[in-house]
């Protein structure tokens, strides 16, 4: 397009998307309530499992500092990041593969806005809000149970690193979704996403040994899913003073990783659009 009359207001478009999604979900209110309750039930079951584990052990690993309530803080962080990713992007990434398969991506490409923005945020899943609330409740509950109090710096940094975590997971998800341009059937890929993020659900200290260390390095520096929860969660459970080189490097690396993942996913997304050949009828 040669002449764009004015820059579209992205925020307003996003808010419209959010409102439309809410209206849509409110049409099927029963369904919305069931979705909310069922995802919260999964969380509660997981919580029960970890409570059970901590009946038997005081800590995950030797001297890692991840006691029961510290781990609950970790869990709360996982919940917050995951519910944001699910609420904002999950359904859209899922839909993206469908847009490619059916050729309906044509209609998105025609719109005078950034295609990645339109594809990524078209629909907001409001039922993820339940888990977000649950995550926040768990966060405050566990904060009341631990001795350590995070300072003002941590309080400021925590949301920032949550944002980084969301950015990293989003990038991974949209990259996988974009790859359906080349693969068409992407069911296994989404399972793959689920299994990869599975690694992000535990403190990185547990990946040790001949097999664990390479695994930890891989999922920290190559596919940075371990950074997603670990970096913000650590802010809440221990002083900022770094105890090792890794401790000092990691928060800085998280910023780089978030920016890098976004850039990489943008590149893959654009490559996918170039390879897209519609599906004419």
């Amino acid at each position: 397009m040669t002449a764009v009359p004015e820059r579209p207001d992205y925020l307003r478009v996003f808010l419209t998307f959010a409102r439309n999604s809410l209206v849509r979900e409110m049409i099927f209110r029963g369904n919305f309530i069931i979705d909310t309750i069922s995802s919260m039930a999964w969380v509660l079951i997981n919580l029960a499992f970890y409570t059970l584990i901590f009946r038997y052990t005081p800590m995950l690993g030797a001297d890692t500092g991840w006691g029961k309530y510290q781990f609950f803080l970790f869990l709360a962080t996982t919940l917050i990041v995951n519910s944001l990713v699910r609420g904002l992007f999950m359904e859209n990434a899922d839909e993206f593969g469908e847009l490619i398969r059916t050729g309906n991506l044509d209609f998105v490409l025609l719109k005078p806005m950034d295609t990645q923005f339109l594809v990524s945020l078209n629909r907001i899943e409001w039922s993820a809000l339940g888990n977000l609330v649950l995550g926040l409740l768990l966060l405050f509950y566990a904060l009341g149970k631990v001795d350590y109090r995070p300072g003002p710096v941590q309080v400021v940094l925590y949301p920032l690193y949550i944002g980084c975590g969301v950015a990293i997971l989003y990038s991974l998800m949209i990259t996988l979704a974009a790859s359906s341009v080349w693969l068409v059937r992407n069911q296994s890929l989404f399972n793959f996403w689920f299994y990869i993020t599975n690694f992000s659900r535990y403190p990185m200290e547990i990946y040790r040994g001949d097999f664990g260390t390479p695994l930890r390095l891989f999922f920290t520096f190559i596919v940075p899913v371990l950074v997603v929860v670990n970096v913000p969660a650590r802010l809440l459970v221990r002083p900022l003073a770094p105890q090792s080189v890794e401790d000092a490097v990691l928060p800085l690396f998280a910023l780089v990783a978030a920016a890098g993942s976004l850039a990489a996913s943008r590149w893959v997304f654009n490559r996918a659009l170039v390879s897209y050949r519609s599906a004419s009828s």
Binding site: L60, G61, D63, R208
Partner: peptide
């Protein structure tokens, strides 16, 4: 890895 960490935690006490 999770259970390894759990058992390590048990042994510390």
């Amino acid at each position: 890895f999770l259970w390894w960490a759990v058992f390590e935690g048990i042994q510390t006490v």
